[in-house]
């Protein structure tokens, strides 16, 4: 696959993540009657809060994603990172302003971290791709 094709694939995956996040925000927040403005506001606000809430912690999965060169490893990294984020939420979350895991529940926490983690890893993969010299993917 050529580098431009891979770039397009990454951007498409990124857009899919945003769309999935918007669908989740609409469903989770019961944003009815449907209003794109409200959905966009809540999606952006939710993602921004999760990213800013953990701040520099996101650098770790980002760097790991840049470091690995196989998509299957990134998939494994996605699962590991989501589990790690939930673990951190359970221990340090309330101090960071998040609801205690006992109140948030684990399934809600999975939904909370799955998309931001995927976006973080996609960004790492994109950075690796743009840094690579070859125009062809090995």
């Amino acid at each position: 696959m050529s580098k431009p094709q891979r770039l397009i694939l990454h951007l498409s995956a990124f857009v899919l993540c945003l769309l999935f996040s918007a669908a989740l925000a609409t469903w989770r927040g019961a944003l009815w009657p449907f209003d794109p403005k409200a959905t966009a506001l809540m999606t952006v606000s939710g993602l921004a809060s999760v990213f800013s809430g953990w701040g520099p912690v996101w650098i770790i999965p980002l760097v790991l994603s840049v470091a690995v060169n196989r998509m299957v490893w990134r998939l494994a990294l996605w699962i590991i990172t989501v589990v790690a984020m939930i673990g951190m939420h359970g221990t340090l979350g309330p101090a960071q302003g998040f609801a205690p895991l006992t109140r948030l529940t684990v399934p809600s926490a999975v939904l909370l971290y799955a998309v931001p983690t995927a976006m973080c890893l996609l960004l790492g993969s994109l950075i690796r791709l743009t840094m690579s010299r070859s125009t062809e993917f090995n």
């Binding site: 989770r28 927040g29 809540m42 606000s45 999760v50 809430g53 939420h89 979350g93 948030l104 909370l112």
Partner: peptide, 25 residues
């Protein structure tokens, strides 16, 4: 978290609840 409490009118109050829900708060 820069303020522990806020005096808010509706619909800002509802917006705070909805944004918190989306952010795991």
């Amino acid at each position: 978290g820069r303020a522990e409490t806020a005096v808010l009118p509706e619909p800002a109050t509802t917006m705070a609840e909805m944004r918190a829900l989306q952010a795991g708060q």
